[in-house]
Design a protein around this nucleic acid. Structure first.
Lengths: 243, 243
DNA sequence: CGGAATTTTGAAACCTTTCAAATTGGGTGG
DNA sequence: CCACCCAATTTGAAAGGTTTCAAAATTCCG
């Protein structure tokens, strides 16, 4: 695992993302850079914020990947969401869902304390947009698990990751590096590793994606999005058979 | 549908919930009461906040039930979450860049503008806790869809509703009133109506629940929770979610 | 009272999981 | 640099859980 440096080894993923999200001012960038310099390293497989943790102040993922995990009593495990470089953790003010989940490092992760929103112009806005995005993606995850079949889930998730990594400057049209194993993919998608493997093979056979451990290539993202009907905005207000 | 008055006909569900969430002061309560007086009615099946809507300021559901819905191109539909009396909508501040969920009224809904957080002591705290709870329940929904089977999903959702309705003073140990049809249940749980029906029958046969349109009775909530391995959702170690 | 919505039933098809076990790939120590 | 070990990926066959497609039975509401 982690053949190539974990996506996001570039120290600027956080700067890039927050800049694009609304904090492009030199002051904001320099304050963020200072925070990055104070980043801590969490080793792979270690907890970043534990369940029932006193969950310190908000932090940002500078490099590496993490996952918000929920464990069931009998051992079943669900990755509620994936965290990539540039993502913020523990926003939402004081009370953050405690008992609800744990965040663990999927790769080695560098995590920095998040500068106070008032420290520079644009920061507050960027944090707000980041939080809104997080919530939107969480809702996407619900729809993905609730109504998409295995093939669609895989394609949908990869497209989402491509989207998010691109925002952080960590992906290009040809694809992106990822530390995800098929087992982790299964944990995110609510499937078994075996089935993820089979569907992944099918997707490769159909020429939709290329998957070699450590790197994903989306042959034609737009065509794929069309194929599974991933149209971010839709929802017409009043459909005939609606409630 | 809606044989008995929709759960939450009581005008105080919002007061009860926010009071317990951190805004028990007389000032806060009276300001909230004033807002409730200015509530608008949204008729059943109508949109409360549309996608791309200018989504005005935050509002609170005074009475009635609603659902956050996501529609797929081919007609598949997923209820991302259910909204009950006392729940807040449109917090999170700014815009929702990504989008794509609509909130529709499942019953007739009374919705009031949310007083400014600074208008009274405790309001800000209550809003924050409410937002945290919403996020926690959203994560629960992900786990529910990702790792629970149909039987478990049904039990888990009913327990969650019982929990939330109790917080708003709308449920007792014997159960609660609900406008949900089996089809809506299917939309929340990512299942087909037919299968929900069969599993519901099974749950009744096993004596876990009683379901007659308009009212759910959880025969032994604690035993049921134990049976499916569910832990109540909490947001802060100190905040008693157990009413 | 009658039409519409909701709940129920049945049987068969389908997708996903299970349970093993084999294979591949990479990293480590000799 | 090769052998070996462990993690990750693959493969097979069979069991299971859910969906589909119809259609009947109930219940609700105007």
């Amino acid at each position: 695992m982690t053949q190539e440096r974990p996506t996001g080894a570039s120290p600027s993923a956080l700067l890039t993302r927050l800049s694009r999200l609304g904090a492009p001012s030199p002051e904001a960038q320099s304050i963020l850079a200072a925070a990055i310099a104070r980043a801590n390293v969490v080793r792979i497989r270690r907890e970043i914020v534990g369940e029932g943790d006193s969950l310190g102040r908000p932090r940002a993922i500078v490099s590496g990947w993490a996952a918000r995990v929920r464990l069931l009593q009998d051992g079943r495990r669900q990755f509620v969401s994936l965290l990539i470089p540039g993502d913020l953790v523990g926003l939402g003010g004081q009370p953050d869902p405690i008992a609800s989940s744990t965040v663990i490092a999927i790769t080695e992760v560098a995590i920095a304390p998040l500068p106070d929103a008032a420290a520079a112009p644009g920061l507050a806005a960027a944090y707000a947009v980041s939080a809104a995005l997080e919530k939107a993606y969480l809702m996407s995850q619900v729809t993905r698990l609730g109504r998409l079949n295995a093939q669609e889930r895989i394609a949908d998730l990869l497209l989402e990751l491509s989207e998010r990594l691109t925002l952080a400057g960590l992906a290009d049209i040809r694809g992106f590096a990822t530390p995800l194993t098929q087992e982790m993919l299964a944990d995110v998608l609510g499937l078994t590793p075996v089935h993820v493997n089979r569907m992944l093979q099918m997707a490769r056979r159909e020429g939709d994606i290329e998957w070699r451990p450590g790197r994903v290539t989306l042959v034609d993202p737009e065509a794929l999005a069309r194929k599974i009907g991933r149209t971010p905005v839709r929802v017409s207000a009043t459909l005939p058979t609606d409630y």
